[in-house]
Design a protein around this nucleic acid. Structure first.
Lengths: 136, 136
DNA sequence: CAGATTTGTTCAGCGGGCTGAGGATTCGCA
DNA sequence: TGCGAATCCTCAGCCCGCTGAACAAATCTG
């Protein structure tokens, strides 16, 4: 269907995202992990963070982050504890198991990137995406 | 956060898609429509289709399409009827109300495209997305 | 200091992807 | 003819976005 050429850009982005992420499904499922959880672990690698801060970094609402963290906690990949300084806050920390699965994921991700040979100028393509996200 | 530059491509696509589609939220909500429903109506504009065929065109599973169509039906934008030739099939037809809201959406979509001035070479960017989708 | 406001998180509920499983109908071949 | 295989759709259940609303803790203000 050549019809796809006339799709609005938002639709193109959405479908492309699903297809690319689908490539990763097997790895994630085999480690009891999800895509959202992986991003969260990535941001926690540098050190503990409050949930709200995590939500901002992941470009997600507080509510969505709350659920994602709860799942990671049940999987044993993060710990939660109330902040002593500000007891409204919950500090989230990555566990050794979390660091371990994160390292594995980095490797798998790098491999799957090579499947994107379809794009002519890969780096420029990425930069356009980054620019788009930053300006919106 | 310059950190975003190092995100895997799948993540970039996903976030960009959400941001761009979010631009459209107000219009859709005001017409009791959703993004998935809009795509479905688009494919129905040419004539009735079986659900499975619709799912393929929209790059979605049968189950997802089933739900989307049911919602469109409740909103009065499509009709469903069993195919006389093959009673396993359900033929979906767009209603006059559906055609009308589709025309409105086309206009709104075209306007929102102009918000994408962030991308340097817009047409090339789109073509790369199309190519990526077609090869996966 | 008490009350109002702000801040951080969670609960409820919905749409939209997905997988897995199951029912109804049709098709194909012995 | 008849039974198994393929086809089309739906139901159940999960994760991931979102909005709206509620709650506890901290902070601001009169």
């Amino acid at each position: 269907m050549a019809d796809i050429d006339s799709w609005p850009t938002g639709r193109l982005l959405s479908v492309a995202a699903r297809l690319v992420e689908g490539r990763f499904y097997e790895f994630l499922a085999s480690h009891g992990l999800t895509h959202a959880g992986l991003i969260t672990l990535h941001h926690l690698a540098e050190g503990p963070l409050a949930q709200r801060r995590l939500a901002v970094l992941c470009r997600v609402t507080d509510q969505t982050m709350s659920r994602t963290i709860e799942r990671l906690r049940r999987a044993g990949y993060v710990d939660k504890q109330v902040d002593g300084q500000d007891r409204r806050r919950v500090l989230v920390t990555i566990t050794p198991a979390g660091s371990q699965v994160l390292a594995l994921a980095y490797e798998a991700e790098r491999e799957s990137e090579h499947l994107m040979g379809a794009v002519d100028d890969y780096e420029q393509f990425r930069q356009q995406l980054v620019k788009l996200i930053k300006t919106v």
